[in-house]
């Protein structure tokens, strides 16, 4: 007998036993290896009327490890330019069991029913847990070498990075990330004797200890053409670049091809030896404030940024701002 075994303990001797295991309540349930200890006490009066107290035996029950994994992918398509390398999608892998468990990851890109297959598909772990992919910081994942070890309810963000082939606008590719408990997977209720955390068994939970979720890449064939011009107006109504002259920069972004660019953003830095002219940013002729949060524009001594939004092919947007030469 192994795992949640029980013991018909000897008489309660008033010591130890109570300290076994922890009782922290978690979403994932009692931590694997915790020992549930039960004793009862009876009291009665003997024939002479004296009260007597009798303890029961001690029953001990060890909680086994439940193996459960959850994987959650992005809700929306990841728009990627046709032919672009290193396009990133992200997933969250959760240990839904009650013991520390390493999770084995795999990604499948050659699924049927979609329009194309991304190539050079890799998995990275969000090692610095900042939610952003950085190839210099985040670890490339290799099965069995750096399986993320997750505590109960623990999560790991995982990036799938892939190269896009050439293709038509709107073509979609499906990829699937799978997470499996390293101890084992199977039908709910299957158990692995003695393999659970804390010395008990490991038991496959309702997820089969095997979960996956899908993400989609959607190709965009839209192409951006950027044009930056500058006009100078000096204090003497001329166009000499002298101290005190105002330079108006114009940034025109034209989208051609087909499809839509999502979350399009135009940024620029303030050139050295110039100062930003407060309140001078415009988008398509309309003034924007410098403050963040109130409209599409933000600006300051270091640079300007305008959040244009989704831009379809055929549209163009022009941002202007002014600086004064020191």
């Amino acid at each position: 007998m192994s795992g949640g075994r029980w013991k018909r303990g000897a008489l309660l001797t008033g010591c130890s036993l109570l300290a076994a295991g922890t009782d922290a309540a978690r979403a994932a349930g009692t931590r694997a290896g915790t020992v549930i200890v039960n004793t009862a006490t009876a009291t009665y009066d003997d024939p002479t009327g004296d009260p007597r107290t009798v303890p029961s035996n001690v029953v001990e029950l060890r909680v086994d490890e439940l193996l459960d994994v959850a994987v959650s992918g992005p809700a929306a398509d990841r728009t990627a330019n046709a032919g672009a390398p290193n396009q990133v999608t992200s997933f969250i892998v959760t240990n839904a069991g009650n013991g520390a468990e390493a999770v084995r990851l795999s990604v499948e890109a050659a699924l049927g029913g979609d329009d194309f297959n991304p190539t050079n598909v890799r998995i990275y772990l969000d090692s610095d847990k900042d939610g952003l992919f950085d190839a210099n910081v985040d670890q490339l994942y290799t099965v069995g070498a750096n399986d993320p070890l997750l505590t109960p309810d623990g999560q790991q963000r995982v990036f799938v990075v892939a190269d896009m082939p050439a293709g038509t606008d709107g073509a979609r590719a499906q990829i699937r990330l799978t997470g499996q408990a390293a101890t084992g997977t199977g039908a709910p209720g299957d158990s692995f004797a003695g393999r659970g955390e804390g010395g008990g068994d490991a038991v496959v939970g309702s997820t089969g200890a095997d979960a996956d979720d899908d993400a989609f890449y959607a190709l965009s064939a839209a192409v951006v053409d950027f044009e930056k011009t500058a006009t100078v107006k000096d204090p003497f109504n001329g166009s000499e670049a002298v101290p005190g002259a105002v330079i108006t920069y114009s940034l025109k972004a034209s989208v051609s091809g087909s499809g839509t660019l999502r979350n399009f953003r135009i940024t620029d830095v303030i050139p050295t030896d110039t100062k930003y002219e407060a309140g001078s940013v415009t988008l398509n002729g309309a003034k924007l404030t410098d403050a963040a949060g109130d409209d599409a524009g933000t600006a300051g001594a270091s640079g300007i940024a305008v959040q244009v939004g989704d831009v379809s092919a055929g549209a163009s947007n022009t941002v202007t701002f002014q600086v004064v030469i020191d």
Binding site: G3, G4, R5, A42, Y44, D46, P47, V63, D64
Partner: peptide, 30 residues
């Protein structure tokens, strides 16, 4: 219980027996 995991339903039984020759009065179990 061979294997016990969170969510399992347990039934605890308490069996009492008076092996003495006289009745036990005011019997209480906690």
């Amino acid at each position: 219980p061979q294997v016990v995991v969170p969510g399992d339903k347990l039934v605890f039984h308490l069996n009492y027996r008076n092996a003495g020759a006289t009745p036990a009065q005011d019997f209480t179990v906690t």
